[in-house]
Nucleic acid binder design. Structure first.
Lengths: 192, 192, 192, 192
DNA sequence: AATGAATGAGTTTTCATTCAT
DNA sequence: AATGAATGAAAACTCATTCAT
C-alpha cells in the first residue's frame, strides 16, 4: 500500500469516527483501530488529531467554496440560483459523514480552528451578500438588509442539511433544491 | 449565603465560563475560581460538569418552549407569528451568554446530551409543523413540505441569532423580528 | 501535611531518584512512588519534571555561589582561600545526593537547562579569575593565564568531589580541603 | 560502497549528531538523515543506538589510554610528563566532536555504560597513581594522597578541555600542555 | 457546609526497533 | 544489502471527581 493510499485510508476512517463520535469523543485509538494500523502509524501521516480533522473539514469547505458561483446578472438569474443551491446540496449529501462533521462537530475544537470555520462562513456570507446587493439594484432581490438575508439563507440551508444528514430525515433528494429555491423566492406565509 | 443563592451564583459563573470557552475547554477550576468557591463546593450543588451545563441549557430551552405559542387560526395570524418570533428573539438576546452556549457549544457533549438537544429541536419543529399544517388548510401557508418549512425556519433563526450573539454582528434589535417575519412571508428573491 | 511539607517531601524523594537514576532514567512514577503519593499530586506542586529538577539544582548552585567569598587582598590570603575551599567541600559533601546530581547528571537535559549550568560555572570561573588577577598584582599568584587557572581549579575540585560522592571514594573529609589547598599552592611535581 | 566505508560514514555522522545534540536528544532519524541512508540500514551496522555511541566513545577512550605512557623513572621525568599531557591534549583537540561527546554527554546513558566510563577513568587514575607513587619514592612527587593527586590531575585536564572544546574557549593550543605542566609542578598560589 | 489537597484513569505523543519488500 | 513504512511500548501530563478535615 503506497503512502497516498494509506493517507486516504486514515482520512476515510477518521472521517467515519469523527462523524460517529464527534471530535472530542473520537480517540486516536478509534481511528487506528478502524483503519487497522498501529497507533504510531497515524503519526507518520498526520501531526496530530487536529491536523487530520482539519484536513477532512478543509477539503469539503474548499469544495463547497468552489461550488458557489457568483450570480451573473446579465443572464437569467433563477437557474443560476437554483444551480448554486443544487450543487451545494448535492455535494454535501454525497459525503454525508463529512457533512455531519461539518454541521455537528466542527466547533469548540480550539480557538484557532473555530476562527477558521468562522472565516469560511463569513466568506460565504460576504459572497452571498454581494450577489444580493447586485440583485437589489436589478430589482430581483427585495429591499432589506442583505447581510441578514445572507445569514437567513445560510442558516436555513445548514439546518435542513443537518436534519437530512445528521438526523437522518428522509426527504426526496431531487426535490430539495427546488423547494429551498421556492422558499427564498416567496417564503411560505400568505398573510397580509 | 443560602443554598439557593449559592446555586445561582455557580450557575451564573458557569454560564459565563461555558460561553467564553465552550464546554470542553471550560474547566471546573475556571468555574469555581470565577464563583469564588472551593472546588469541592461545586460538587455539593451539582453532581458533575454535565449536570450544571444541562441545567443552564435546560432553563433556556424551557423558556424558549414557553415563548412559542401555538397559532390560533381563529384569530388574525400575522401578529401571532410576529409575536412568536419577537418573543424568541427577545428572550435569546436578553441572555446572550446562554444563547451563545446554546448555539455554539451545546453539541458534542455526549450522546445522551446530544439526544436531548435533538429532542428539543424536534419538539419545536413538530410544533411549528402543526401550525404550518393548520395554516395550509386555511390557505395562509404555501403548499409544500411543512417539515421542511419548519427546518428552514428554525435554521434561519438560529443562524441569525448565532451571528448576533456569538459573532457580535450588530443589527438594530427592534427590527430583527419584523425582517424575519417578512422573510418568511415573501422570501427575498423576485425572479420568475 | 501542609503544602510546604509536601513540596519538601517531593523534592526530597525526587532528589534521591535523580541521584540514583539520573535525569532521563528517572520517571515521574518513580518519584511519586518513592514519595507515596499519586501521580497527579506531583503536578500540583511542580509544573513538570524539569521544574523539580531545576529547583533541586538551583538551590545547591545558589548555596555554592553564596559560599564563595571574594578574596580580600588587604587581609591574609591563605586562610581566605582555605575557607572558600572548605565551605564548598563541606556544603557539597553535606548533601551528597544533590551533589551527585550536580556533577553527574545535570547536563544533556535540554538546551535551556544546559545553558543555565554553563552560565553558573562561567560565573564561578569569572569570580575566580578576578581573584587570581588581584593576586597576580600582589605577587601571590603565579604569572600565567588566569582563566586557565580558574578552569584547572574548578575541574580539579569537581572531579574530586565527583569521586567522593558519586563513586563513593572514601577519604577523610577533614583533610580534603587542606590537601586541595596545598595542590593549588605547590602542585605536586618536584622536577625541574 | 563497501561495508567498512558505510560503517565509517555512519560513525562519522553519528559522532556529529551526538556532539551537537547529546545522547538523548540525538535521534536515529538525525543520524541516518545526516548519513544519507535509510533508517533500516543503520541497524544492519549497529545493534542499537547505544552500540554506535559506545563505539565512538570506546575508540577515543582507547586512543587516550594508548597515549598515556607509564613514566620511566630511570629517565628524566619532566619531559615524559610533558609528553603525556601533550599527547592527550593533542589527541582530544584533534577530534573535537568526539571530545565533546566524551566530556559533555557520556553520562546518564544507562547504568552499564556509566559503569564503563567509570571503569575507564578508574584505570587512568590507577595508572596515574602508580606513577605518582613511583615518583614519591624518588622524591619527585610531593608527599600526600596519590589517589587524590590523580583525581585533581584528571579533573583539571577534563575541565580545561571541556572549556576549549565544548564552550569554544580560545587559547593557543601549543601553550596549553606547558601551562598545565607548570600547574602540576608548582600550582599557582604563592602564599605561605 | 465548605474546603482544597489528593487521586488516578485516560489520552496523546514519541521514537527506537522491526520487517516485508 | 538497502529501504522506509509500520510497530507498540513507554511516558508525560490533565482534570473531573473524591474525601478527610
Amino acid at each position: 500500500m503506497d503512502k497516498a493510499t494509506r493517507r486516504q485510508q486514515l482520512l476515510h476512517h477518521a472521517r467515519d469516527v469523527f462523524a460517529k463520535r464527534g471530535y472530542h469523543a473520537a480517540k486516536i485509538e478509534d481511528i487506528v483501530t478502524a483503519a487497522g494500523v498501529a497507533r504510531g502509524t497515524f503519526y507518520l501521516y498526520f501531526t496530530d488529531k487536529r491536523a487530520i480533522f482539519e484536513e477532512i473539514v478543509d477539503r469539503t469547505l474548499h469544495r463547497v467554496g468552489m461550488a458557489i458561483e457568483r450570480v451573473d446578472i446579465t443572464r437569467p438569474v433563477a437557474d443560476q440560483v437554483r444551480g448554486n443551491i443544487r450543487r451545494i446540496v448535492a455535494l454535501l449529501l454525497e459525503d454525508r459523514a463529512t457533512t455531519k462533521i461539518l454541521l455537528a462537530s466542527a466547533s469548540g475544537i480550539d480557538p484557532a480552528f473555530d476562527r477558521k470555520m468562522t472565516a469560511f462562513f463569513d466568506e460565504v456570507a460576504t459572497l452571498l451578500e454581494q450577489s444580493l446587493r447586485d440583485g437589489q439594484e436589478l430589482g430581483i432581490v427585495a429591499k432589506g438588509d442583505t447581510r441578514m438575508f445572507a445569514y437567513l439563507t445560510m442558516g436555513s440551508l445548514k439546518e435542513l442539511l443537518f436534519e437530512l444528514v445528521v438526523r437522518g430525515w428522509d426527504h426526496p433528494e431531487e426535490r430539495i433544491a427546488e423547494e429551498i429555491f421556492l422558499f427564498f423566492r416567496a417564503g411560505y406565509l400568505r398573510v397580509d
